[in-house]
């Protein structure tokens, strides 16, 4: 099976709410693809549509070129974690994995393997009702891995995890992708995906706003801006503005300069004998890039809504 997810033109309404509005993107193997958007953007709905759980009004979602509902042993092709709390509290974690394994023709040995992989061996024979949120997330990851699938669909897997757990999850997801799997991970916080995602699909109001590699995204958000470290802040601002640059204060000793190249900045400062300690190309954080993009999206939507109201 081709380890891809193709989502094409998904539309879905819940009564008056438009949850999906032409959602289209592709998840390719060997990468962690972040699926990011604010609350209510339609991430979970898209994932349920991919897994054949929710029907859609239009469009289709294919896994390895086939609709999920036609897969014979789906967990051997797609591992998923939608809601870590979806457990029968009276059943032990191990028995939860056991019935799932049985449904795919797998045995108890495979259960013990995935339990080891997620580091839950010590708690696995306890009632799932007694698990902490982080333990439930690990159990959910174990369930997703049961069938050793080439595709993984995970809805906010680090939600509720402590920093140590988040670090573990990042490394784990990266190693899964490094094995050649396609990994789709949703989050409503871009920062959660920093150092994890290779690619991001940014969504808002049921459609894709940006579908870019993380490297490209950061580069475009950084623009041609320059970060300047100087103790003579006021003096620097004056001379740079005279030279035609736009200058913003971003810290006590930090200025962000745009409209001038690095060489011109150094030259202008030298000509006017303004002291500075560092001139460097500005590098945006993923969060910054994301904020910039979603701000545009919100404005765009506001304009559309105004038009529609007329």
């Amino acid at each position: 099976m081709e380890a891809t997810i193709e989502v094409t033109g998904l539309r879905k309404r819940f009564g008056p709410t438009v949850a999906l509005d032409g959602m289209t993107f592709t998840v390719t193997p060997g990468k962690v693809t972040g699926f990011v958007g604010p609350n209510g953007a339609g991430k979970s709905t898209t994932m349920r549509a991919i897994l054949g759980l929710d029907s859609v009004d239009a469009g289709h979602a294919l896994v390895g070129g086939r609709p999920y509902r036609t897969l014979r042993h789906p967990l051997r092709q797609v591992g998923s974690l939608l809601d870590a709390g979806a457990l029968q509290p009276a059943r032990t974690g191990r028995n939860h994995l056991l019935w799932l394994a049985h449904s795919q023709g797998l045995g108890a040995r495979r259960v013990d393997e995935v339990v080891g992989q997620v580091g839950l061996a010590s708690a696995i024979r306890r009632r799932a009702g007694s698990y902490s949120l982080g333990m439930r997330q690990r159990l959910g990851i174990a369930a997703a891995l049961l069938g050793d699938p080439p595709v993984l669909v995970l809805d906010e897997p680090v939600n509720g995890m402590d920093p140590e757990g988040i670090r573990w999850m990042r490394g784990f997801l990266r190693s899964l992708a490094a094995e050649g799997r396609a990994v789709l991970v949703s989050s409503h916080l871009m920062s959660e995906l920093q150092d994890t995602a290779d690619h991001v699909v940014i969504v808002g109001r049921g459609k894709v706003i940006a579908d870019v590699s993380v490297a490209d995204l950061i580069e475009s958000a950084s623009g041609d801006r320059i970060t300047l470290l100087t103790t003579a802040r006021t003096q620097a601002m004056t001379v740079l503005a005279h030279a035609g640059a736009t200058v913003a204060v971003t810290g006590a000793d930090t200025l962000t300069v745009s409209g001038l190249s690095g060489e011109r900045v150094v030259a202008v400062l030298g000509e006017n004998a303004v002291p500075f300690s560092e001139v460097s190309a500005h590098r945006a954080s993923l969060e910054e890039a994301y904020m910039e993009l979603t701000r545009d999206a919100v404005e765009f939507h506001a304009a559309v809504a105004e038009e529609a109201a007329r």
């Binding site: 081709e2 029968q88 019935w99 049985h102």
Partner: peptide, 30 residues
């Protein structure tokens, strides 16, 4: 990138597996 291939042996898809799963579900809730 080479696509991931599982090493798990292929299994038959049968109603029996579903029965076994549901039986496991039943007997594991005291």
């Amino acid at each position: 990138m080479t696509t991931y291939r599982s090493e798990a042996p292929p299994a038959r898809d049968g109603f029996g597996q579903l029965l076994r799963a549901e039986w496991t579900k039943f007997r594991t809730v005291r």
